[in-house]
Amino acid sequence: MSTKRIAGPEIERLIQLLAKVPGLGPRSARRAALHLIKKKEQLLAPLADAMSEAVDKVRICSVCGNVDTTDPCMICTDARRDPSTIIVVEDVADLWALERAGSMNARFHVLGGTLSPLDGIGPDQLNIRTLIDRVAGGEVTEIILAVNATVEGQTTAHYLTDQLSGFDVKVTRLAHGVPVGGELDYLDEGTLSAALKSRTAF
């Protein structure tokens, strides 16, 4: 079944590219494209400029694996951050989430994924070597493993713990348990047993 084209190739291409953005499907991409075209001067042109600038300037931080327009990134060069604590995350999205929480003034390290035999991702595909190098530098005293509470995430956490065992560094991980606003009745048994196991004095 062929799809009837409703606009010129430039607009079709814009729609096709927008449809590849997470959260947008073909229909919502059409709506977004139409909205951008209607607001050409206020939105489309500045967006195109911002994207073009991002293409030129965005780079991966050679220290922590974060994305920024400078290398090292703003987090790594921020003198107010505690250089003795590194929070290890799977992805930049996790780094942003923890930064939103704003509860620790530490530095970060982005692994770029987790060990996943099913996807063929081994230690060499992750940003682990640079983490070891940072710890070997001697300034770091604590590594906080903020990986997902999935089998792949915990495999990565155990692997990192093994790799860091030769260094004089404390390795900690995030607690597993009841989320804020969570009702016990609706939680799965695994989360409940993890919460019970890591209960604290009250």
Partner: peptide
């Protein structure tokens, strides 16, 4: 779900590696 074993195995390195070995 019938038995949610995964969370029970998270804390043990041997369990997590054992699980990956079995799957492999």
């Amino acid at each position: 779900a019938l038995d949610l074993n995964a969370a029970r195995l998270f804390d043990s390195a041997a369990a997590i590696y054992g699980l990956q070995t079995l799957a492999g």
